[in-house]
Amino acid sequence: MTILVIAEHDNKVLAPATLNTVAAAAKIGGDIHVLVAGQGAGAVAEAAAKVAGVSKVLLADNAAYAHQLPENVAPLVAELGAGYSHILAAATSNGKNILPRVAAQLDVDQISEIISVESADTFKRPIYAGNAIATVQSTAAVKVITVRATGFDPVAAEGGSAAVETVSAAHDAGISSFVGEELAKSDRPELTAAKIVVSGGRGMQNGDNFKHLYALADKLGAAVGASRAAVDAGFVPNDMQVGQTGKIVAPQLYIAVGISGAIQHLAGMKDSKVIVAINKDEEAPIFQVADYGLVADLFEAVPELEKLV
């Protein structure tokens, strides 16, 4: 068995989610190859070659792959991946965008967002917003799988010494082009990789009040997240949303502030090790999953918490 892992990167840096994906590949067992498709992504390939457990890195460097357009990257992955037993990608927005296109081109069903490897052909994944866990078996010749990063502890980024091989295949479907992007800037840790996450909901009342959470987060070295209600109300940008339709996090500590705890929000954070809820409504569903609940006005509790930690 040989497994192809699609590297998650921005042409400069190998994203941490790749390390979790390699960890899932290691659980399946077999040789692990990593594909870096991008433009000017040599440094990413070198970083991938150092990842523990990786035996070969394939570098496809071409302008067509610069922005991870699925119309161009999917044919490349399908062509290279046809000879592998498994193709894995992190369940990031890129992985989710590209991999189903690959699966359809290979005429196999995909398994999305696995959280555990039972055997080389059997995997567990959450369904119904995490309210049920399905065990799924695949008989496909090539098993196409996205990996939920929080389900697997990352492998070491150093220690490997794989060879980097250049792939010349260039696919440019010519039906899509990159126009531009607007990336949110933040000095805080990345939400999906942070050890501590502080999230605010509708109870924050407005965007300005999130400054209380930022202050607390900075003291804790935490990332700041939000519920859909806070995003829809325009308090904070979309990419901060935690939940079924936003990001899935599983930090050591998750502090939910002014969040009621709807099913869709819990889907994104209930695998956190310790959950703290601060809410003035003692009937709020969030208290049913919280390890420590504090019924209090967040505008008094959060500043006090910031002082004490």
Binding site: G130, L294, E304
Partner: peptide
């Protein structure tokens, strides 16, 4: 289909938490 659902289970339940009385108690517990 090349996929087969073998089993569907309920997710592991979280053990019941506690309510703390003050921010100071919360910090102490954490």
């Amino acid at each position: 289909s090349t996929n087969k659902t073998v089993k569907v289970e309920a997710p592991a339940a979280r053990s019941a938490g506690i309510k703390v009385k003050s921010v100071a108690e919360l910090v102490e517990k954490l």
